[in-house]
Design a protein around this nucleic acid. Sequence first.
RNA 1: GGUCCCGUCGUCUAGUGGCCUAGGACUCUGGCUUCUCAAGCCAGCUACGCGGGUUCGAAUCCCGUCGGGACUACCA
Length: 484
Amino acid sequence: MDKKEVRVRFAPSPTGDLHVGNIRTALFDWAYARHTGGTFIFRIEDTDRERVTDEYIQAAIDTLKWLGLTWDEGPEVGGPNGPYLQSQRLDLYATWAAKFLEQKDAYKCYCSADELEAVREAQRAANQAPGYNGNCRDLSADQIVKFEAEGRKPVIRMRMPDGGTTFTDLIRGEVSFDHNFVPDFVLVRGDGSPLYTLAVAVDDVLMKVTHVLRGEDLLSSTPRQIRVYQAMGVKPEDYPVFAHLPFVMGQDNTKLSKRNGEVSIAWYRQAGYLPEAICNYLALLGWSPGDDLENISMKELTELFTVERVHSSPARFDMKKLEAINGDKIRALTIDEFMTWALPFLTQAGVISGTPEELALVKQALPIIQERITTLAEIPPMLKFLFVKEFAVDADSLPKISDSQSKEVLKVSYEQLQSLGDWTHESIEGVLRAALIDGMALKPRIAFGAVRIAVTGSHISPPLFESMQLLGRDKSLARIKASL
RNA sequence: GGUCCCGUCGUCUAGUGGCCUAGGACUCUGGCUUCUCAAGCCAGCUACGCGGGUUCGAAUCCCGUCGGGACUACCA
């Protein structure tokens, strides 16, 4: 695009756990930085300290790390343009606000919240566009003295000049706003703390951000941001390039929320989704590589990602497709990788405590369940039968082996298996097939079904003969005997 | 209400005037395979919001219309 080094930032305001929408933005920011060989900056927008907490900030950092979206400048790693928490940059904002005041780009506004609300109320009633009416734009010295004497705490408000703002959005093309619909806006609160409108622009300039990829909800605040650049004396050719990403919405076409799909990335993490799957799926929301390629790695994403290919229309979040991709990613894991992901789920579920024997058994068992699960959370219930101390058949499966035919199947199985020489899944299968299918003329699903329930406790299990081999001769036989 | 953005199968998307009787993926349905569940394979259903133009020709360009969303804070 140009020879200037690309600098992109992800700047969330952690008022809660990072959610699907945030992360999709972070992912695109990251992918763009990596694609261009630029710098990825992570900045925390915590000017609203009533809503942003340290816990949420830490959670945001953890989530980004877990997803593999590493940053070049930001919390923990630092960088030449820090600090990267807006709450630690307050003096910077104050300095610029004072300068704007001095330049008459901004002015003190003494209107109270109640007065402003009354104005808006009247505007709404009169069917006019609600917005600041410019009441304090040109206060006389006397009026200021009077307000000050009343003890009013002024906010600092930016003066929007007549005219309009036009800028080129990388995704939407040329976008224009008439300043008649962009009222003078507040930069600094009555208590002296900065607002997003001030901090975001100051930081983007000071951090030399070249590309602002962010949510579409910020599109209409862009003229205000550009206004601050002007007041800071930034030349138009040095403004960052904007690209407003389309929304990620819930199933019912409303904003994604608890009601129509989980939003918190932390939830997906503990539900057993792989970071690569989440990123792969999210990358497909509002962007596509162009051909029929869909299952891509993080590396491929950075190679293929361009802003030009980002959509301008919103996308609906589809859990089913995420599940499908997650299953694909799990199946593509090597056993060692799969092991690494599986262990925490098994220990947390209390299925294993982590002894070397258990680990060895898990490693042997993982291959037979790898293609049967879509999330890691499905592992514990599926392997539980191998480790459980006090075995019992599931209540809903018990009736299925209580009939006389099942009893007969189990009896024959027990007798045949007892004299089996080598305990391998091939030999187990051979013996049972001969005795039950050939000998008793039963359908495989009927015959093996009974054994399955007796041995694994459920009518749904990993492949029976492999399961029996892993369980071992003693336990397998004991369970069959117990169900006779 | 105003301003701005958006509009291809149920969903995510391919498509930038002829290769489109619109392709892929997920879902769903049916089938094959099969020791359960999966996985895999095959088949099927279903879309260019609507109306006008421009053009020999439009999903692709223009206008209108309808619909959806965002913003309209001393939130971000």
